[in-house]
């Protein structure tokens, strides 16, 4: 309604302007042209003023949102530490696994060689080509081989158990990576929020309500969420124990 009234007023003024122009009244033409230009400028300035104010409020809202500051200052740094921890853990696991394998392979090779030699002697025996002194030697070699096989079997089992235990990195790093994924989702949500504030610069109030709600929800989640594996440089040393011995001490202090 308001727009159409202004339009009618404009059309009137322009018609008057045209009439004055046709009749060659320069003074009146200039007066009306000035009047029209001023009215256009005033409305432009008003709009610019509103946009500036909205942007200012949007930015204040943005910097005042502590969750975003927290994401940038604390959580991103945490994520970096956590990912470094994942790299360290996976490297340790890989090194440990390869060391155990490198220790196991020579044992297998020596077993293969000894059993091949024994097999040759054994075949000689079954072909009845063996002399008495050779048989005595074979008998001693079989005894030695059995002893070695027993010992090597135990050693290989130990190495394999070490390899098995080294795989626990997957559980630990998996939990840490899930935490980083959650952080990436939070950052994404915060960025979407900024984009929303910037694009709908008129509804700053509505957005700030939403941020408060988000914050309350995040605080609630933070209280109930579990910390997961202790990551050096991230976890609070006072609140956590540093290993099984401290767990045992704490439990025994509770009467366990």
């Amino acid at each position: 309604m308001a727009d159409s009234l202004i339009d009618e007023h404009l059309i009137q003024r322009i018609e008057t302007l045209l009439n004055h122009a046709k009749s060659g009244d320069d003074d009146k033409v200039n007066i009306i042209l000035d009047e029209l230009t001023t009215s256009r400028e005033t409305s432009l300035y008003k709009q610019l003023g509103k946009l500036t104010r909205d942007l200012h409020e949007a930015f204040s809202d943005f910097t005042g949102d502590t969750r975003i500051a927290e994401l940038a200052n604390i959580d991103i740094k945490d994520a970096r530490e956590r990912l470094h921890f994942v790299v360290t853990k996976t490297q340790q696991a890989a090194d440990l696994t390869m060391t155990q394998i490198e220790m196991s392979i020579p044992i297998c090779e020596s077993m293969i060689n000894s059993s091949k030699e024994l097999e040759q002697s054994w075949l000689k025996l079954t072909r009845k080509e063996m002399k008495a002194n050779e048989f005595r030697e074979l008998s001693k070699n079989v005894k030695d081989f059995l002893e070695t096989a027993n010992k090597n079997g135990e050693t290989l089992k130990t190495h394999l158990n070490e390899v098995l235990m080294a795989q626990d990195f997957q559980d630990i790093t998996g939990q840490v990576i899930f935490k980083v994924i959650k952080l990436v989702e939070d950052v994404e949500a915060a960025l979407v929020n900024i984009v929303t504030i910037a694009s709908e610069h008129l509804s700053v109030d509505g957005n700030s309500d939403e941020t408060e709600q988000d914050k309350a929800e995040k605080d609630r989640q933070a209280k109930t969420s579990l910390d997961g594996p202790v990551v050096p440089g991230v976890s609070n040393a006072k609140e956590t124990v540093s290993g099984q011995d401290e767990v045992d001490d704490l439990l025994s202090s509770l009467g366990f």
Binding site: V230, E239, V241
Partner: peptide, 12 residues
């Protein structure tokens, strides 16, 4: 992997 003192106490 939970190593918070309060969690160990909660479990106990």
């Amino acid at each position: 992997a939970e190593q918070k003192r309060e969690q160990i106490i909660e479990a106990a």
